[in-house]
Amino acid sequence: MKTASPFEYLAQPTNLVAVRFDGQTYQLPKGENLAAALLAAGVRSTRENPGSNAPRAAFCMMGACYECRVRIDGASVQACMIQVRDGLVVEKMQPIGGQSYER
C-alpha cells in the first residue's frame, strides 16, 4: 500500500526510472538502494511473515535481518542489498497458505 512517506530526501533525486512493486508503478531514483527507495516512495511493508501473516519491512538496512526480502525474477532477495534499475519488477513476499513462501 502506498501512503505519504515517513521519510524525506535532503535533495530531490533526479534520474527516475519506472519500477513495479506489488502491481503498482513507482518512479524511483536509478542506482538507489531498493529498500531505501521503496521506503521513500511511501511503501510501508514489503512482505508478510509466514505464520502470522504480519506485515514486515526493512529493519537493519545492512543485510543482516532479512526483513526486507522481496521477490525479483522468482528469487527471494534482500531489497537493502540491491540497487534500483530501469524496469525492475518487484513482488511482495506473501506466504502461500500462510505457512511458507515456497510454492
Partner: peptide
C-alpha cells in the same frame, strides 16, 4: 518491534549516509 516503521537506529543513519533520507516524525 516487528511492526513496519520500527527500525534499528543504525538503519536510520544508513538511510541518511547512503540515500540522503531523513525520517520526518521519528
Amino acid at each position: 518491534w516487528t511492526l513496519p516503521g520500527v527500525m534499528m537506529a543504525g538503519a536510520g543513519q544508513i538511510l541518511l549516509k547512503q540515500s540522503g533520507l531523513v525520517a520526518k516524525r521519528a
